[in-house]
């Protein structure tokens, strides 16, 4: 029994490593390209590692503006995560718990809103931002990002909350807890895996958003990282080395966040397991 069990574990570990290798290969190549000196031509067949790796591309790519872009990205993404997850959890809770016709209608409209192609509605949204005097502000991005991530957040939370047994809330109601207390004391802690997953979704989507960020901001002071790093894409070509170097730098903070928060992240994902 244990021998078979161990063999199974070994095979699964190998499989996991294999999957990881395939997933990470493009990153390996990205780093390889970022370390290639601009003067070393790309060889055929492609070399896995440059002959004379250098950090020159990183030095060119790391400009003083990067700090501003980074701070802007932090502010915009942080605020969006907080607002979206709050609104999303509140709304999803109502959709899973209260059987009102109007709520079903609203839920349908939430799903429908997610289907609108951004390219078709960006000009009217831009006009509204202009009329509200919000162009070239971080707030305009936060509003836009909350709007576009909210439907998905509601749906993700809906999936988790629907799984939570209603008996706990009923018990709380019997104990005399009001609906608000029930929500904050019972529902929120129990839906932590969902909240973590949703927060990660919102964070990642906003961290890399490009179309709105490009359209709504015009000065360097307001730009976010994805827009700032496109400086290496020109009319007749891309400076691959510098672009890849700046991509590594853009991805790094979020990777770090994951490594640092890894324990909480996993704990968050597993928190729901305790319930019966």
């Amino acid at each position: 029994m244990t021998a078979r069990f161990n063999l199974q574990r070994v095979l699964l570990t190998v499989l996991l490593l294999f999957v990881a290798a395939i997933v990470l290969l493009p990153f390996f190549w990205m780093i390889s390209v970022s370390l290639k000196p601009a003067t070393e031509p790309f060889s055929i067949p492609a070399k896995l590692w440059p002959d004379a790796p250098t950090f020159a591309n990183y030095i060119t790519a790391f400009r003083p503006e990067f700090r501003t872009y980074f701070v802007n990205s932090m502010i915009v993404s942080g605020a969006t995560v907080a607002i979206t997850v709050t609104f999303g959890t509140l709304a999803a809770y109502c959709f899973t718990r209260f059987q009102l016709n109007v709520l079903s209608l609203i839920l349908g409209l939430v799903v429908l809103a997610q289907m609108f192609p951004h390219a078709a509605i960006i000009i009217p949204i831009y006009k509204m931002m202009k009329n509200a005097g919000l162009l070239n502000t971080r707030l305009s991005l936060i509003i836009a990002y909350v709007t576009v991530t909210l439907p998905v957040a509601i749906w993700m939370m809906h999936g988790f909350l629907a799984k939570l047994p209603i008996t706990l809330e009923e018990a709380a109601a019997v104990d005399g807890a009001g609906p608000l207390r029930t929500f904050f004391d019972i529902i929120v802690p129990l839906s932590r895996p969902g909240i973590v997953a949703t927060s990660v979704y919102v964070l990642i989507v906003t961290w890399q958003e490009f179309l709105f960020a490009l359209s709504f901001t015009s000065t360097k002071e307001m730009r976010t990282l994805p827009v700032g790093m496109n400086d290496f894409i020109g009319q007749y070509g891309i400076r691959y080395g510098e672009l890849m170097a700046s991509s590594v730098m853009v991805s790094l903070p979020i990777v770090l966040v994951f490594f640092i928060l890894q324990r909480q992240f996993v704990a968050g994902l597993t928190a729901g397991a305790v319930k019966g």
Binding site: V23, I204, L225
Partner: peptide
């Protein structure tokens, strides 16, 4: 090693869409 894997496996999704496409 699954803890690290959980973070690593998310990498493709973290990469900005424009960069992923160019890559």
């Amino acid at each position: 090693g699954q803890g690290i894997m959980r973070a690593l496996i998310l990498l493709p999704w973290i990469l900005p869409g424009v960069v992923a496409a160019i890559l």
